[in-house]
Simulated scan of single mutants.
Amino acid sequence: MHPEQALTAIWQAGVDAVRGDNAITLALAQQKIQRPDRILAVGKAASFMANGAQKYFGGDIPTLVVTKYEHVGVISPTIEVIESAHPVPDENSLHGGSALANAVADMPKDSHLLMLVSGGASALAELPVDGLSLENLQAENNRLLSQGLDIHAVNTRRKALSDIKAGKLLARFKGARVTTMAISDVEGDELSAIGSGIGHATDKTPFEFVPYIVASNKIARMTCAALATKLGISVIANEEILYDEVFALSKRLGKIARTTQPGLRIYGGEPTVVLPPEPREGGRNQALALALAREIVDEINISILVAGTDGTDGPTSAAGGLVDCTTWTSEGAVALQSADSGSFLRQRNALFTSGPTGTNVMDLALILKV
């Protein structure tokens, strides 16, 4: 199998293992979850997670999905869907946040709510604190996203601006039990950080609260490793270490790739990138892929795939980049400087596009040396 084909197949296997419908159906069966009276799903994988719940319980439970534009997929007509923007909220995000808040508040005594949460919920559903306009909220999100902050720092500020994050949504619940099932897109898999805590409940809640993490970057990486081994590829490393700025990461990972033995290195996490005042096309995965292409320009035996497991990298329709020693040219430096890695990778036939995947467990970087 050609290295590019192998990397694509390995990445896809990891993503499929944490797809929302698969993860939810399995978790509901394993945990023997009681039938809920209402299902609320929010995040990039929300429609897939809702489909998994309907497959398990049947299609007659009132269900609301709030997800990203073009991330609905094939979904039951009985499910109410609100599509909104990511990574910066829009008017529909406020509609989604209001709909979630009303649905939670309207649930009666003794009711059971099933919350399905995945990454992206911070922007996709929002109810700003009193006095904060949508325009100001968007400006603050743009400012946060341009500074190269990690997700915990970004979400700390988002929580302060929101009336449904950090346990505030479930504080409206007057029923008996909330079960939250989440696909983790954060380091440490903390529910209070996923979607800025939109599915989290504080310790003082009067209802029973039972949370589960049903999919994570670790599960995706382990599945990648299993397929690589089946294909006869030695797995040299399998780590969640992509928590640095893209240029620092590219230097470090490029050196490792050049100087160590053949095999596959699997890395997970979420890099950061500092954007110029007027960024062009691309996201953190495309930037990291292009920066790594510079590091392996003389290495004919190395191929690298860097992609977001949700299938979208920043405000683009691409997931990332698939590069080798032929990808880099001197024009790449300008593309990196102007945050235009997407345009460059497209011109070099190195843009990696998967379409929405039905999950979101941060990013995967696969470095194959043959």
Rank of each mutant, 00 (worst) to 15 (best):
I219T: 10
E281W: 04
D90V: 07
N51F: 02
G96P: 01
A160S: 15
P262F: 10
Y56T: 08
S184Y: 07
G59R: 03
L7D: 01
A248I: 14
L114V: 00
Y69A: 03
P77G: 08
L249Y: 11
G320T: 07
C224P: 04
K174S: 15
A29T: 06
L322R: 01
Q5K: 12
V104T: 09
L290I: 02
S146E: 00
L264F: 04
G355W: 00
V72N: 05
F57A: 03
L169C: 09
K165C: 11
G308I: 00
G195W: 02
L292E: 07
P128N: 05
S84N: 02
L134I: 12
G73R: 10
A201K: 09
T8Q: 14
I164Q: 10
A220G: 05
G58H: 11
A339Y: 07
Q337P: 00
I219P: 00
A350N: 10
I256W: 04
F207R: 08
Q347C: 04
L290H: 06
G321S: 07
N92E: 14
H2N: 15
A29H: 09
D324S: 14
H112V: 07
K109F: 09
P206T: 06
I10D: 03
L116P: 06
G342H: 04
D130A: 14
A257N: 00
D90G: 14
E187Q: 14
